Amino acid sequence: MAQGVFARASSFDAVIRISTNAGDVLDDVIALPRGLALKVMDVPDDRLPGSEDETSQDFIMVNGPVSPLPLAVRFSRT
């Protein structure tokens, strides 16, 4: 599992985005999908085809029981 940003002990600049479906500030008792996106900057090493010029690595997390995009290919850029 030690690949990409996890390949070796390092520190990176990162940006976090917290989101909710409604766009309003709602109490946590209201059941809506909530997400967190993490963009890690200046990550070295190889890239997937089509993203060789990119330098960041993105992580997308959602608290729902099922992904709205169940196929990983839907996240890729073509």
Rank of each mutant, 00 (worst) to 15 (best):
F6Y: 13
E54V: 11
T55D: 14
R17S: 06
L32Q: 07
A72K: 11
R77C: 04
A31G: 02
G23T: 01
L48C: 01
Q57M: 06
V62W: 01
I16T: 10
R74N: 14
T20F: 00
L69A: 15
I30P: 00
G4W: 03
S76N: 13
F59W: 10
G23H: 07
L38Q: 02
V29A: 13
P33N: 12
R47Q: 06
G23V: 03
D24M: 11
S11Q: 09
K39G: 03
M61Q: 11
T55E: 11
P44L: 07
I30W: 00
K39D: 05
V73E: 15
S76H: 12
A31V: 11
D28R: 14
L36S: 01
S11F: 06
K39W: 08
F12K: 02
D13F: 10
P33I: 00
I16C: 09
D13C: 02
A22N: 04
I30D: 04
L71A: 15
S19P: 00
F59M: 06
A72R: 09
L36P: 00
G35Y: 08
I30C: 04
I18K: 03
A14I: 02
R74S: 15
L48T: 03
E54F: 09
L26A: 08
V15A: 13
S10D: 14
A14V: 05
V25G: 05
P65A: 15
T55A: 11
G64I: 01
L48K: 01
A22Y: 05
G64W: 00
P33L: 04
P33M: 09
S19D: 06
Q3T: 15
D45F: 10
S51I: 14
D27R: 06
P70N: 12
D24E: 06
V40L: 01
L36D: 00
I30F: 09
T20C: 11
G35H: 04
Q3D: 04
D28I: 12
G4C: 05
P44T: 01
A22L: 11
V43H: 09
S10F: 06
L38I: 11
N21G: 06
D58V: 14
M1S: 15
R17H: 07
A9W: 13
A22H: 08
S19E: 10
D42A: 13
P44N: 01
V5T: 12
Q57E: 15
E54N: 05
G35P: 05
N63C: 03
R8G: 07
I18D: 08
L32H: 02
T78M: 09
K39N: 05
V73L: 06
A9M: 12
D46L: 12
M41H: 13
Q3N: 08
G50N: 09
S10H: 06
Q3K: 15
R8C: 04
V29H: 08
K39S: 07
L48M: 06
A14Y: 12
P70Y: 05
G23Q: 05
D27N: 14
A37Y: 05
I60G: 14
V62Y: 07
A31I: 02
M61A: 14
M41F: 10
I30Q: 04
A22G: 11
Q3R: 15
V66N: 11
V29R: 00
